[in-house]
């Protein structure tokens, strides 16, 4: 049984069919990459898994719990870094990180400060932790948010485009952090990104969403074999442009 179980999930916004019959199982400890163009339904899916939106039909279980009826136990063990999220500009980097640590975790404050310092060091913000984030660049703010989303030591992480706006070196640090969380701390991570290199580097399995439909699921190797393509980028382009049909193949 997976940490996330989705069966026949549909989501409508008015007459717009945002998610179409999604079936997906995500196993504990894996890094699952969710690929899709803007508006494909990635954020909607994550919001449903966090209990921020309710499904129109179908069944969703996270840690065996239905997020639409009982989201709080899930949110104690899962953390979300939304795509368009910003840091609180009138708080320092450390305050931003600790704020969410204290809200999510029951660990003592000293322990959270220690972990926050460790994360700040890891993402390259050492020495800037006591500055207000309104003085930070967009990339630095994003790093603060990445640290903020993991400080509470959640078992499950939803990272919606975590490296967007971060420079090359910064993005590498964030990727290293994700790898550490996965390999050393055995976190389950759902990662959405437009960066296909990131998918290849970090993800155990990939799901490709096209217009709300999950067209393909598998490891990068499985998908390359299934679609007889050289890499994920080719598969993604073909699915998005409709040159291959995904599930029907």
């Amino acid at each position: 049984m997976g940490i996330i179980e989705i069966r026949g999930l549909n989501k409508f916004f008015g007459s717009f069919h945002a998610l179409k019959d999604i079936d997906l199982t995500i196993r504990e400890g894996e890094v699952f990459g969710l690929l899709g163009l803007n508006g494909a339904g990635k954020t909607t899916l994550i919001r449903i898994l966090m209990g921020l939106l309710n499904p129109s039909s179908g069944s969703v279980r996270v840690f065996g719990i239905d997020p639409s009826t009982n989201p709080l136990p899930i949110r104690k063990r899962a953390s979300l870094l939304p795509q368009e999220c910003q840091a609180y500009e009138n708080l320092t980097a450390m305050e931003n990180i600790l704020y969410y640590g204290l809200m999510q975790s029951e660990a003592p404050k000293e322990e959270l400060i220690e972990r926050a310092n460790y994360l700040i060091d890891l993402i390259g913000l050492k020495g800037r932790e006591n500055q207000l984030t309104k003085k930070f660049s967009g990339g630095m703010k994003r790093k603060v948010l990445v640290a903020r989303s993991v400080v509470g030591n959640p078992d499950l992480l939803f990272l919606d485009e975590p490296t967007t706006g971060i420079d090359v070196l910064g993005a590498r640090k964030v990727r290293n952090l994700i790898q550490k969380l996965s390999r050393n701390e055995k976190k389950t991570i759902i990662l959405t990104t437009h960066d296909l290199t990131e998918i290849n580097l970090l993800c155990d399995r990939v799901g490709i969403l096209v217009d709300g439909e999950l067209k393909a699921i598998g490891t990068p190797d499985e998908l390359e074999g299934q679609f007889q393509a050289a890499n994920i980028e080719d598969i993604f382009s073909s699915l998005v442009e409709g040159r291959i049909g995904g599930d029907e193949e």
Binding site: L52, L81, C85, S149
Partner: peptide, 8 residues
């Protein structure tokens, strides 16, 4: 969104 996703 991040605030609403907290266990509160």
């Amino acid at each position: 969104e991040a605030l609403l996703a907290l266990p509160m």
